[in-house]
Design a protein around this nucleic acid. Structure first.
Ligand code: MN
Ligand code: MN
Ligand code: MN
Ligand code: MN
Lengths: 222, 222
DNA sequence: AAAATTTTTTAGATATATCTAAATTGCTAT
DNA sequence: ATAGCAATTTAGATATATCTAAAAAATTTT
């Protein structure tokens, strides 16, 4: 068993590829990676070759890449670190959930197994990060809560917000404003045929209209 | 006022130069820097030119370098981060004081003013790190406790350990073993003419003999 | 099935951070 | 004062990570 050592840039690419490949482990295209990481396709091709040589992805020219067994292990460790750090920032340092992503993007690359072990312990072995995303354990195991995007709910469906898909500051600030925090109770009141926007009731108090796009980025219990 | 952006490597060099220049702000030689950072003199010359162009050091060929006003500010911010993180690791994550240096060496480069502000707050604005070194505040201000190296004490001198000079794991483990932790009470019993080793009494309990080298790396109150 | 378009790769640069070996400068001891 | 040695710099490589522009392959449209 050879250990894989990855640079910051390599970890970022691998994580992006892992996220893009999704549950069905689709092959990921060069352009998709470039878009995610705000780099150019040519840079992606270069990096893809390096990652392929290290065995963390499989690559066929012009056919996109897939994450290998080993690559998934490595990607999940980066994801684990990212989410543990986000949890630390919110729980211990009182960051708002829209302020943590950029910093975690840096912290996730710190190399120290002991640090992560102790951080996990310090946080009480959290299972979900501030955005509702599951935190993989040291073996890469995790489970998501059963959930459905608001946009896919039928009228009358009622549930509790369990996660947000987009973790960008502008989106989270909007979610804050309407009060649809993780844990908020939501009922789908009406769906507008014209633009698929939704009318929802939040915490039995407030009725708001949300766009289709917003509705696709908030997950609630089934 | 132009803000200075430094890479990891640049921060490491600047910090090393700052430490090497000492209180008297001596010019620092190329070889001294290379030794400290385990690099080669040629690499140091290259980096020196970059740091000089950025205005954080002043450089005269063949004459060594001095840290500028701006450079000192920048160096102290890196030192501040290093020592705050070390404090965090010991106080919150239960690291031993001999386990923190390497990790802090990485964490000190994370760029986020908010993170450091909140970390400082979370730790209760500590004034000293686990090795007894003073933690600069956000303006770079700090004060060391009045102190004297054990090796410079006269026979009969009594004081409390306030800091250790060497922060390497082997040295700290030795200090642990003899029980000369920060805060331990120490009395100089005798000094051996032959090799300048010392006989000391620790916490009124235990008498141990320490080498000259060790005695130069432990500071106690005057 | 060809043509047009899009996607991907290659070729050739640039920037950072290192290194070894050779040249140069500075210091010291005769 | 100068010869010799030590310290430093320069020259020329290597490795990583990025880019633009051009070429090649795949896909889509006609
Ligand atoms: Mn990252
Ligand atoms: Mn998250
Ligand atoms: Mn460092
Ligand atoms: Mn320290």
């Amino acid at each position: 068993m050879k250990e894989i050592k990855l640079s910051f840039a390599e970890e970022n690419y691998l994580k992006a590829i892992y996220h893009l490949s999704g549950d069905d482990e689709q092959a990921v295209s060069t352009n998709a990676i470039a878009d995610t990481l705000n780099t150019k396709a040519a840079s992606v091709t270069d990096m893809i070759k390096k990652l392929s040589n290290k065995g963390v992805i499989s690559y066929q020219k012009y056919r996109g890449v897939k994450v290998s067994e080993m690559g998934q292990k490595a990607a999940l460790q980066v994801v684990r670190k990212h989410r543990l750090w986000e949890t630390f920032l919110v729980e211990k340092l009182k960051f708002n959930w829209d302020e943590v992503h950029e910093v975690a993007e840096q912290l996730e690359h710190i190399k120290s197994p002991l640090l992560i072990k102790r951080l996990d312990e310090f946080l009480g072995y959290p299972k979900y990060d501030p955005h509702g995303d599951p935190i993989p354990d040291e073996f890469g195991e995790f489970k998501s809560k059963p959930r459905v995007a608001l946009g896919d709910c039928i009228i009358g469906h009622e549930g509790v917000v369990v996660a947000v898909k987009d973790a960008s500051a502008p989106f989270l600030q909007y979610v804050d404003k309407i009060g649809a925090y993780i844990g908020a109770k939501i009922k789908v009141i009406d769906k507008v045929e014209f633009d698929s926007s939704l009318e929802i009731l939040i915490d039995n108090k407030k009725t708001v209209f949300i766009s289709k796009e917003v509705s696709e980025n908030i997950w609630i219990t089934e």
